[in-house]
Amino acid sequence: MAILNKPDKVHQAIAWHGDIPITNRYTAGVAGERFFREVKENGKFMGTRCPECDLIYVPATMFCERCFAELDEWVQVENQGQVVTYTILYWDLDDQPLAVPLVLALVQLDGSDGGLVHYLGETDPEDVYIGMEVEAVLKDPAEREGSILDIRHFRPIQV
């Protein structure tokens, strides 16, 4: 007689629709504040160095996750680096085909132990390879807002 065992003629599969009505607002944080201002105002990429672990974090962090030292040694790293890995996107987040495929790469900036995930541009997706030398293309200073999108994309370095 248990209700789980009884076929239920009244019931048909019903779904209730709803949402979670929030927007997130993320501060750049103590280290992020300086990192993104350097990109915005000076077009420079800065990392923080842990002397103990001999690592340069990019994006800059306020502490070394390995030894827990507070990091206050800021060093400039290059606006260029190497493609560590990449992927080519053919579909967007809503599962619609993209007119032009997007290339997304992890770029390790020269002079640092870290890297940025960003788009690759000004290149044919088929020409991209791991180890490729690329450089950051920044927006015009007036357009920059202190965000990761102040970098338009990375592009291959013309030799």
Partner: peptide, 8 residues
Amino acid sequence: VLYNTWDP
């Protein structure tokens, strides 16, 4: 202050 927003 620098920040960015995201609508999930």
